[in-house]
Nucleic acid binder design. Structure first.
Lengths: 124, 124, 124, 124
DNA sequence: GTGGTCTAGACCACG
DNA sequence: GTGGTCTAGACCACC
């Protein structure tokens, strides 16, 4: 479920945060379902529990999860987060379009690239 | 011409590299024109010459500039680089479209955001 | 009567203690009336009896209840406790005023906020 | 400047965060002035650098400071934060008034307590 | 020198 | 068992 890429320049805890965000936003992990325990996941990935802890703390801070001492970490309700993510994507699109114009990429080419991306089957 | 944002989390040399890439790709700096000397720029920005040196080395490595011993650094011919940049933008668009579909952003919304970005005046 | 909020960061036993304090101080639970048995309440709330026990022990320690071996826990006479609580509230007000002054909040604004809080209907 | 209270139940890093917030909000530490380095402060307080690091990370997250790798941590512009703090104080006052009414504390008593707090000289 | 990340190992409160 | 905090010591990129 979680894979660490040691060639990735980003810190491990950040990779873990991002991966869980993905799993939660896409509904793979349902609301109130439990995340792996800090210790278990640390053993699984052969990394230090503190690193997992840091990732979980960050997820909680961002509102993706909530944690109960002595019980575990759980997926929070995500409606607002999904909404926020959608806005982020649209903002990114808008920024990208600006950039494209600045570098002389044609509007048609850009939209074609968008349509291509939409068509492609994805195999996660 | 170059402004450093100390609150930006990215390293200073990276900010400098990116800024020169921009100036070069947009044609503000013409081919074979000379970049400011390491010392001058360092004084101008009140930062360590080593930091400028690192930025210039990186620019040369990426093909944006070439350096002549004892003379300075100069802007390289950029046709290939512009082309590469355009491809990058189109790839990014394609990736973004995939992401949008995965998060349930509608194709129309996405294209509207793109068109918006294209319309807007930019005030760099 | 008692509701546990698992998303609340405070420990469960502390939530229970506080809720009983409230019920007792506001007179919902009268003096010498019996609290639910440890086992019953534990079953009701689907939590560990040890957690209830810890809450009851704490309530007794603070003088809100007294326990009779083999009979159960009972609400103590509360006049002193109510008095103590009122003093606590007044102390808190005084502290808050100090803080307000230190951060440059005007006396009038502060008193208006107080009056607002007094006016508002509460819907517990 | 910073004192750790080991009897305090709250974690050390939280005490440090709160203390710096105070110093910054009250203007003792001015905008863009440098905080003690992670290592120095750790030595001064005889605690582990990681604990300071955690405090500084939290301060940055909350917008009180910004950090530059290789340079240090610096106080951020605080206008917005002071404003936020003032609102917090007013909210707290409103909540306190509600509580007071619920426990039968008279409006006059409460306001007197507020006025007392405002009058008192403070000797930090 | 600086902040940032990570490991290893420990202790605590909670349930 | 769980999450949360802390220590000790290390390495990295950056300036």
């Amino acid at each position: 479920m979680i894979v660490i890429d040691y060639k990735d320049r980003r810190p491990i805890y950040e990779q873990i945060v991002e991966r869980f965000q993905e799993l939660i936003l896409k509904g793979v992990l349902e609301a109130d379902s439990q995340l792996p325990s800090v210790r278990n996941l640390a053993m699984d990935l052969s990394i230090n529990p503190n690193t997992i802890q840091k990732a979980y703390t960050e997820l909680e801070r961002q509102g993706y999860t909530y944690s109960v001492k002595g019980k575990g970490s759980f997926v929070a309700v995500t409606d607002r987060l999904v909404q926020r993510k959608k806005e982020e994507v649209l903002d990114a699109a808008s920024q990208l379009a600006k950039l494209a114009r600045e570098y002389g990429v044609g509007k048609e080419q850009l939209i074609n690239a968008i349509l291509d991306g939409f068509k492609e089957e994805h195999n996660d």
